[in-house]
Design a protein around this nucleic acid. Structure first.
Length: 421
DNA sequence: TCTGGGGTCCTAGGACCC
DNA sequence: TCTGGGGTCCTAGGACCC
């Protein structure tokens, strides 16, 4: 039996937790670059502010309806997530952290009853972290997801437990096909066009062969799981990362190659830091630059180029140099660029690297230098030392907008909350 | 009358997740 | 003026091997 614990309106809940003035106002949290709405509190949902709505289309309503706005603050959400997961880890020895705000749990003994266990976890999390959650419990992960959907949508207490075959069939008849975990917008739309509206319709409409033919092996797993046949196991150990990316939209449009080069250099440095933080080395690097696809009045262009390193690397200068060389090959004058990114792949453990006689980089020297830089930046701030290519810490045209950023009261001493009594 | 069999690796595109 | 970021998996097709 699996329980899915899912934080309610996670980003909005984190913001409200440390700003009591927000409690009675509708709140929306924006994507990076303050682009569009990615989280809404219950009050904002009640006002029909849709997920993904571009922020500029919301401008007038912000004033009129006294809606609070926050830029994404991942330092805060990341730390709150860690707290939530730590509490959950004390509830059971078997859990899978599925995303920043979700975890699957299984319990060795359920003597106290599944529903009571769900309630107990909910109360404990609220007491220890202040974050409200919903709990869905069922014989498979897909059904636990469905139960969680039901708990959020149709219950007061935020807990839904599917124990009998009858419970399951009632829920599956109600679950809209596009709400099934593993069925996205594309398949959802195609299925609905064929009159397949609920999860129960989906189960009835296919055989194992036909569902696999149309939706591959993953579709078959989903189809089985909806019938209480486990096909997706609990993954307690996260599998090793295969790729890693740093990509950003720019605060304003960029035309000069030098600005793109600076932005890509900064993204590459960040990617390299993440790489070393995970004790990984990268065999391959890809970069891309994009114009704004929403601007129908401007010409469109996408450039991308990759390079496979002769020796898997963790060396920032080597990666920055490569990114800038690749940029020269794809840059076209006259376009207004809106976004760029760096993707590292072919990731391997940094202790098992096949070296080369003709390696241009001294790996021993490089790894000591990188370790020193990482230590300095950890202690004194993220960009205390960096390559000249990435420019200074000052704001550039490509720096992302974050006009509504909150503080980091759980991770920075200077932001710690003062209480006046 | 009419061109083998079996395998790996890589990439692009599509679909999905949060 | 103005629309996010970071991942995974699956499949098909091409290139290449013996």
């Amino acid at each position: 039996v699996f329980s899915l614990i899912d934080c309610n309106n996670f980003y909005a809940s984190c913001e409200k937790l440390f700003d009591p003035a927000l409690h009675t106002r509708p709140l929306v949290v924006l994507s990076n670059n303050d682009g569009c709405v990615i989280a809404r509190c219950a009050r904002a949902k009640a006002r029909n502010i849709p997920m993904g709505m571009p922020f500029f289309k919301l401008r007038e309503r912000i004033q009129q309806e006294n809606i609070a706005v926050r830029s994404s603050n991942y330092e805060l959400y990341g730390d709150m997530s860690r707290r939530v997961m730590n509490t959950l880890a004390r509830c059971t020895p078997h859990m899978e952290i599925y995303s920043i705000d979700e975890a699957f749990l299984t319990f060795p003994d359920t003597a106290s009853g599944l529903s009571d266990t769900g309630q107990a976890i909910r109360h404990r999390l609220f007491r220890e972290t202040g974050i409200p959650v919903s709990v869905g419990t069922a014989p498979t992960k897909t059904l636990a997801k469905a139960a969680n959907w039901y708990a959020k949508k149709h219950t007061k207490r935020g807990v839904c437990t599917l124990e009998s075959a009858a419970d399951i069939s009632v829920l599956v008849e109600k679950l809209p096909v596009e709400e099934i975990w593993g069925i996205g917008s594309r398949h959802g739309r195609r299925l609905k066009e064929r009159g397949i509206i609920t999860a129960a319709d989906f189960v009835r409409a296919f055989s194992p062969r036909s569902v696999q033919r149309e939706m591959s092996i993953t579709g078959l797993r989903t189809w089985r799981e909806l019938q209480a046949i486990p096909a997706i196991p609990l993954e307690e150990e996260p599998p090793p990362k295969k790729s890693l990316a740093v990509t950003r939209s720019f605060g304003s449009m960029v035309t000069a190659k030098s600005d793109l080069a600076q932005a890509l250099s900064r993204f590459t440095e960040r990617a390299a830091e993440k790489l070393r933080h995970g004790s990984l080395a990268a065999q391959r690097m890809d970069i891309f630059i994009l114009t704004n696809r929403h601007r129908k009045d401007l010409p469109d262009y996408t450039g991308h180029r990759g390079y496979t390193f002769p020796v898997p690397t963790t060396d920032t200068p080597e990666m920055v140099h490569t990114a800038r060389r690749l940029l020269k090959e794809i840059y076209r004058r006259g376009f207004y660029y809106k976004k760029a990114g760096v993707i590292l792949s072919g990731l391997t453990d940094d202790t098992h690297i096949q070296t080369s006689l003709f390696d241009p980089v001294n790996r021993t020297q490089s790894s000591r230098l990188m370790a020193a830089c990482d230590t300095i930046n950890r202690r004194y701030g993220k960009t205390t030392v960096h390559t000249a290519a990435a420019g200074g810490a000052q704001k550039a045209s490509w720096t992302m907008r974050q006009n509504h950023l909150s503080f980091c009261p759980t991770t920075r001493w200077k932001d710690i909350i003062t209480v006046r009594v």
